[in-house]
Design a protein around this nucleic acid. Structure first.
Lengths: 337, 337
DNA sequence: CTGAAAGCGCTTACAG
DNA sequence: CTGAAAGCGCTTACAG
């Protein structure tokens, strides 16, 4: 099937290209009769305006891009999925299309197939950056080129970038406070990689609570590098074999908690009686663990909406630089603590 | 920061636009010295060729788009994620960028923000279609416009479309066979919505095995509309309350199996001793359930690669229409049966 | 090895 | 209410 251009439609309906452009853009200054005529031809030909040409001319694509990292061969998980879903809804409501692409802080420069290439080369108007690193070159780039973007997470390298993040210090604080308030004495806090700001902050919050509320009968320990389900499993297994055996485990990420659960059950221990498990994220799936996992709510919908609104403001020029929003976490009580 | 065009670079380096175009496209017919000069200016200016213009001119974007449906407010899950990951790797290897977008069979026509809009309007060269429906208008559209695409799943409406699918009849057959071979007598098969071909086929395979191997002492039942974790949970709960109590459950989708596990454990039953659970998909997470779930392997990497290769052939014109590949499922034995 | 010019398919002042 | 023409930023025969 031939693919028609605006020119074809113009010829076929006996008007100028300018007029066709008017009708496809809903310009009111077209005689009803003319509009009909053109619309008819469009319907018959199946004409669709070429977005490449339109965007090139208008210098905007009306599409946003969200970058997610394929962490070391692993993929984004349920948390990212839920966040992305909310963002897509929000984008749609505001007349933007949103597309997801993978991009990694490390490989973007050389790799033409890293999704970041699309943004650098003008295929999107703005970006949501997940999984940024410290001194992330992509952030540097977007900043210097004045491309609208918002970070999901924290940026300590600049003052003028915008981000939305959970208050992770508070999240750590809450985690410690909650577990202690439930009478737990031997608490293991399992966090991801130490290089990520999020984990540093959670550790800080945990330490702060512990320091503020000393208890000689308590033992608490922070472990890093628990970066996926498998590690959550093996590290929990090790921990449960030690003495004293932890009676509570905080695990960074509800999804990874699956590994914790398995290790606990393999020792024939019960959750929460013998070992309490506290997660964070509040992904939907967590409500169906056995038992449903008590977790720290990241307020995924609020985070997503806030991030996109900041981005929209940058896009229409009404936003200021360096808008930073910290979302307050809260405990979602279920049955694992 | 000013954004430079090829024209700026040409002026700045004292050559023509044509020559700049040559160096950015690695045309060998450029004097080394000239190339140096141009490259230097490019580095200094931070020039990046505009992809919109390039694509408009070349009539190809070098990007592929994968469409995933947000099923009724739910999002795609771990299975989709793993499939998408494999596809992105494969695309990258072959010099394509790949982007993910949400699109639904129902809303794509009216909705400018449905991702399908991008493809219709020329922002990608080809598509991978997840979650198509029967009489899917999008498939109709792509077919008539001769846009390269491949379906992940089945298409019964045409002969000339290409797809890659698991042999779902065989998968159902295998599920029944395996569970029966393990001596299970009261088997519950939980499938998703009856309107999806995949579920019809799995049911067919199950029935075929059962019919071929009659056993008066056996009771087997197929239930539909178990479409998410929550339903898997509640329907399992109901089933376990009935008599005779199932001693084996096949659940369509490892992720949904989480709900099955929970319901089983809440009745203080043991897996697999009292209730065997067989999943399908072989998502990574399943290896960390308690116990690790025995599942039907969908061969995700093979499926993804096959799909993309078919798409590549269509893109370079070497492919024929109607390439259909059926992947053979196999049992991945772990500890839940 | 290099360049002038046309053209990809749109939109947009500017005229009328 | 409608149109002729320039221009968005590239690539590509065609010449030389």
């Amino acid at each position: 099937m031939k693919t028609y251009t605006i020119k074809d439609v113009a010829h076929l309906s006996g008007v100028s290209v300018r007029t066709v452009s008017r009708v496809i853009n809903n310009d009111p200054h077209v005689k009803a009769e003319t509009r009909e005529k053109v619309l008819k031809v469009i319907a018959e030909t199946g004409f669709e305006a070429n977005l490449l040409a339109k965007s090139l001319r208008e210098k905007r694509t009306n599409t946003l891009i969200a970058f997610v990292d394929q962490h070391r061969g692993q993929f984004w998980g349920a948390f990212h999925n839920e966040m992305l879903q909310e963002m897509m809804k929000e984008a749609r409501r505001s007349g933007y299309r949103m597309v997801i692409s993978s991009s990694s802080a490390d490989s973007y420069t050389e790799d033409e197939n890293d999704g970041f290439y699309l943004l650098k080369h003008g295929m999107a108007d703005g970006a949501v950056m997940f999984d940024t690193k410290e001194k992330d070159k992509r952030v540097e780039y977007l900043r210097s080129k004045k491309v609208p973007f918002v970070i999901l997470g924290k940026d300590r390298d600049h003052f003028d970038t915008s981000y939305v993040d959970l208050d992770n210090v508070y999240a750590g604080y809450l985690a410690a406070q909650y577990l202690v308030s439930k009478g737990r004495k031997h608490i293991l806090f399992m966090l991801g990689n130490r290089d990520y700001i999020v984990n540093q902050e959670r550790a800080e919050g945990i330490r702060r609570y512990l320091a503020e509320n000393p208890d000689p009968g308590r033992q608490a320990r922070i472990e890093y590098d628990v970066g996926n389900i498998e590690q959550a499993y093996s590290r929990t297994k090790e921990a449960l074999a030690g003495t004293p055996r932890p009676d509570a485990i905080f695990i960074s990420g509800d999804e990874r908690a699956i590994g914790v659960y398995r290790a606990v059950y393999e020792q024939n221990l019960r959750i929460p009686d013998q070992v309490a498990v506290l997660g964070i994220d509040k992904i939907a799936m967590g409500a169906f663990y056995h038992p449903p996992i008590t977790t720290i709510d990241q307020q995924i919908p609020a985070m997503a909406q806030t991030a996109l609104r900041i981005l929209f403001q940058q896009l229409d020029g009404s936003g200021q630089n360096g808008m930073r929003t910290l979302i307050a976490p809260s405990i979602c009580e279920r049955q694992s603590v």
